[in-house]
Design a protein around this nucleic acid. Structure first.
Lengths: 115, 115
DNA sequence: TTAGTATATAACTATTTACTTATATAATCA
DNA sequence: TGATTATATAAGTAAATAGTTATATACTAA
């Protein structure tokens, strides 16, 4: 239980605040294993595009994710260079995998709607 | 990194929401190693008594802490019987110890104000 | 039993948050 | 080029949150 990846408590609280939203927490779990574009999240969460973009913006502002444009789409991925990445990774490892949500998109063909 | 203490994502989000407040996160770190009464937290955080009580209430409602009356005082402690205790413990282990805040009280004599 | 201390809770207020609608930007494709 | 698609962002709104003040409850000690 000894841990060397000790992290500033103020920053930790800010990260937990972001992870304290079910949509964002699920996003982070999906991004653990997949790059995703905005429109996929829109499908997965059945939410509006601005709502999804705003969640992603918060995750990006604090450094947890990064974006990369690929043609028409912008893909989001975990920011593995972030100094808090090991902390976040350890936290997320305790939460069940959410890749089934992405699989469902693939199965009903929604994923190819963009990617 | 394999983890068997996998926890419902909805509940995990609710717990992170509570830990996403600096006061409550620090409280939880202190309670990791110490039982504490309300008046001590009032001193530590230089906050009002109702504000502290309301934070503790939220932590209790979700099952993270429990209370025990000892005479005039009510002591709070980690609820080790809670099904999410291993999860919370693992999460907290990544955050620096906050016992110095309690030590400061002892040093300037404030802790004995009640306990 | 009365006064004092510790705590909880209710009611109110200010701030923050998540979402909506509307619009702007940027890339693609006909 | 103009239309379409993907995304970001701004502005507004409703709900949630954290704090305040006021008051109630419970224990202790004189």
């Amino acid at each position: 239980m000894l841990n060397t990846d000790v992290v500033n408590i103020e920053k930790a609280a800010a990260i937990f605040k972001l992870l304290g939203d079910r949509t964002r927490l699920t996003m982070m779990k999906i991004l653990e294993n997949n790059d995703c574009c905005v429109c996929e999240f829109v499908e997965i969460f059945q939410a509006s595009q601005p709502s999804i973009s705003q969640h992603l913006r918060k995750l990006r502002d604090i450094g947890l994710v990064e974006e990369e444009r690929r043609g028409q789409w912008i893909f989001y991925s975990m920011n593995k260079e972030n100094e808090f990445f090991p902390f976040v990774q350890q936290v997320l490892s305790q939460i069940p995998n959410q890749d089934d949500k992405l699989k469902q998109l693939e199965e009903n063909g929604s994923r190819i709607s963009c990617c």
